[in-house]
Design a protein around this nucleic acid. Structure first.
Lengths: 142, 142
DNA sequence: TCGACAAACGCAACTAGCTTGCATTCTAAA
DNA sequence: TTTAGAATGCAAGCTAGTTGCGTTTGTCGA
């Protein structure tokens, strides 16, 4: 499905900015932070617009968001036709390069909360060093 | 164990500020954010000192930290003598009042990461509405 | 008990991530 | 084609957290 159809299906207006951002998120496949998106985009996009666009896509269910330990939110979109990244899985965050990865082969566990609490969502972030950074630091030590 | 002994046991200097902060964390028992701590403390404490104190306590293993969805870190300490809050459990965050609770009756699940990644830690945050806020909003609707 | 020194503190300035308000521009439906 | 409401872009502002540096304070040895 192309981005225009995805936006229409979600009853969102087909603006140029939304198409560009959504296209990028789908292409990359892994969760991207606001700053990562800005630096990848070839044309300048106002930061407020980018925040609002990402929020809109998330609210519409096209994208999902996860928070890194740096306090920055990362956003990931998926094509509804294909095997996607529905969001209910753990995420891995590399503390060295800041890149985030979806661990799509696992589900989030069921958590029992105290009587009276109502659960709206949950997120599990595993952090450490990704394979790429690990080989880099090992190379430096040589 | 009193706070002085805890600090000495961790090979940390017994400064007035550390004792006050650690005492507060132990008394409250649930994870507190920087701003919550500042507002509870009766005597003023420099914000940089508070950040550094909390970091020191965490590094020493006396306290542990969890991040809320608002981007703020919350800190929790436990008396090593008693049944404590060792940190390897999920946390519940109330999106209405911002309070955080330890779900100490559960463990964090084991997560399989992709080949080559090394795991340094993980955190699972469940969010929603706590029982106190829920009854409050229900009362308003009446 | 006293003095030296490293550790800790407190102040100012700064950065990143994100939000609010408002005027301008654009999309989509009539 | 018109037009109302939605989306964008700019300026300003907020909160969480960091860095640098001079001053103060525990701690340990004499």
């Amino acid at each position: 499905m192309d981005v225009e159809k995805m936006l229409s299906a979600a009853k969102l207006r087909n603006t140029h900015q939304r198409k560009v951002v959504l296209q990028l998120l789908i292409e990359k496949g892994s969760p991207l932070s606001h700053s990562e998106i800005s630096s990848i985009l070839t044309e300048p996009l106002d930061k407020v617009t980018l925040y609002r666009t990402l929020q809109t896509l998330t609210d519409a269910g096209i994208a999902h968001q996860v928070q890194g330990l740096d306090g920055a939110w990362r956003f990931c979109a998926h094509d509804p036709d294909s095997e996607g990244c529905p969001g209910d899985h753990p995420h891995f965050l590399c503390l060295h390069c800041g890149k985030m990865f979806c661990l799509t082969n696992q589900r989030l566990p069921r958590i029992e909360v105290t009587e009276g609490m109502s659960v709206e969502g949950k997120q599990l972030v595993v952090y450490g060093c990704c394979s790429e950074c690990k080989t880099e630091t090992e190379d430096k030590l040589k």
